[in-house]
Amino acid sequence: MAIPILQSLFDGILMGGVYALAALGVSLIFGVMKITNFAHGALITVGMFVTYELYAALHVNPYVSLPIVIAFMFALGFVIQRVTINPIINAPSHNQLLLTQGLSIVLENLLLVMFTANYKSITLKGFDQAINIGGIAINKPKLIAFGIVVAASFFVYILLNRTDTGHAISATSVQREGATLMGIRVERINAIAFGIGVACAGVAGTLLAPMQYISPTVGEGFQLKCFIIAVFGGLGNIWGAVAAGLIIGVVESMASLALGGSWSEMVIYLIFILVLLFKPTGLFGRKTR
């Protein structure tokens, strides 16, 4: 009796870590630009496909391909921001939302055109066997993913809090004019922040790639979860996103244990609605405004 519960607790925590990393990107982008990025799910998928292609065509191990994915996704995010988001940065939010939705349509279908709808998967030798600890099976790719998530979160934290660029990002998000007058190029900083957010999605994609089937629409399932976690953690709050990711991961796996897979989504959406209604500033959110 206790074993299944412990098992799903463990699975939930490990999976929650990956959610957290992806959501961190949403949170950062919203925190800086006040834009809800509806292309985030599709960008996770792009990360998966980059990883898959490197694996299938060049036999690069997904974990080895991480730096390439990060660089590629950062550049992609940077360009997307400059070309499409920046011109509408002051537009009403329905325009912004629909624009990112449009980007999502473009990205998903571009993947469809390039790679067809056939499911793909990555099988890593030696990784398919789960580790067994006291009756609890631990999936290796999930464990590795969790380790990388912890490292990546620290990296992002250091980047945002200990570097000039990071300080410029937070300065821009709270005080645009003050930042401009200090010589900070707000547009460039926004593009960098978007790039970092997209890179987070990309890394999450890489980490998910060995765990599941890959297809152009697979990211959609993560999209709303990212929003939920980002809001739950407090938009713009990194550790909040990490904590919320773990919580949502555990809730999801516990709920699917108790209610069955298809109803478990419902629990998460209900939590989302409750959070939006009662604590839109998130778990650790202070009352602002």
Binding site: G102, V106, V113
Partner: peptide, 8 residues
């Protein structure tokens, strides 16, 4: 997919 790329 190309139709939706164009549309998007």
């Amino acid at each position: 997919g190309m139709n939706m790329v164009t549309y998007g």
